[in-house]
């Protein structure tokens, strides 16, 4: 019996060694090729960071951390500060979230319930995906010539009735942080909806049945059981959307007004890190390029932290599932 096993093992070994070496080399070589390519995708992320860091290094050593808290931007005398842009990036993205989160989660709930037939829901979610497919430069063009003129009377009204609140002070001309936020909220809504809807659809049906059996109405079930159960997925989607809003470039460059100022009013023009880089880089001199690289590094750090946390939240949820 044992000799038979030995015999068969020897036979297998013979068969394996019989495989001519070109085939084995191809197998091994192919494995390593795919591994190197896969690793390069991960390394690309690190490479981008390192490359931008290296290019920004002269500016980092000259301007230090004071760059992040100073407000002057003067390429002529080489004095640079990024605070207005950091402020603009954060405020425009947060205001966009303020609009997009309630709407997005509401729509995600509506589409994950059976209020309307499946085919209609499918058609609507396809329309929502198409919003994400619109090139941002086309949204920017539309913003400049259609949306800003359309919104101007509303801004004037807002300014004249609520102007005593610093948020709506100033003299509105249309291109402003609020305009940017409104368009950004449209752009990030598809992310929130698709991930939140996916999360709500994946919840175990027992949750709904249990709540219903206890006598909860449909909306009690949604608000007290389903949304809390899917909260991590929803939070993950919101953070991804935040990262996307902060990094959005063309819409920002075209609609925010590109003014280097720090104003409490949402109706005033401002600028974001991305819009600053987009509008100044092509004509920048050597020092200014280094400074803009530094600004890019700041943006990369901000979006990277947010994206990593978002992915971890979503991953964690999927693992539990």
């Amino acid at each position: 019996m044992s000799s038979f096993a030995g015999e068969s093992q020897r036979f297998t070994k013979q068969m394996i060694s019989k495989r001519n070496s070109p085939e084995r080399i191809a197998d091994q070589g192919f494995f390593w090729l795919t591994l190197v390519m896969a690793a390069s995708v991960a390394l690309l992320l690190i490479w981008i960071g390192l490359q931008i860091f290296t290019a920004a290094f002269p500016a980092i050593s000259t301007y230090g951390l004071g760059f992040l808290t100073s407000t002057t931007w003067n390429p002529v005398s080489n004095v640079y500060g990024l605070l207005p842009q950091i402020y603009g990036t954060l405020v425009s993205a947060l205001v966009a979230l303020l609009i997009a989160v309630p709407l997005g989660v509401g729509v995600a709930v509506f589409l994950s319930e059976d209020f309307i037939p499946y085919t209609l829901r499918d058609a609507i979610s396809m329309g929502i995906e198409l919003i994400a497919a619109i090139p941002s430069v086309v949204l920017g063009l539309w913003g400049i010539f259609v949306f800003v003129p359309f919104m101007r009377p509303f801004y004037t009204f807002l300014n004249s009735t609520l102007g005593w609140i610093p948020l709506f002070a100033g003299s509105p001309r249309g291109f402003s942080l609020l305009t940017l936020s409104l368009v950004l909220s449209v752009m990030i809504m598809p992310i929130i909806i698709s991930i939140s809807r996916g999360t709500l659809n994946q919840l175990p049906p027992e949750l709904r049945l249990g709540a219903m059996a206890l006598g909860a109405t449909r909306w009690e079930t949604i608000l007290r059981v389903l949304i809390p159960a899917g909260l991590s997925g929803i939070i993950g989607s919101v953070m991804l959307a935040l990262g996307r809003a902060m990094g959005e470039t063309m819409v920002a460059a075209m609609l925010v007004g590109n003014a280097n100022r720090l104003s409490a009013s949402l109706l005033d023009p401002g600028s974001t890190i991305a819009s600053l880089i987009a509008s100044q880089f092509a004509e920048a001199g050597r020092v200014q390029v280094q400074v803009l690289m530094y600004a890019g590094l700041v943006l990369m750090f901000m979006t990277l932290v947010i994206n990593i946390v978002a992915e971890m939240i979503i991953k964690k949820f999927q693992n539990i599932e």
Binding site: Q51, I52, G247, T249, G296, L299, M300, I308, E311
Partner: peptide, 14 residues
Amino acid sequence: NVLTGVPAILAGLF
């Protein structure tokens, strides 16, 4: 996944 979220303009800087 994180790379997907890196702002497009940073690909330009890279």
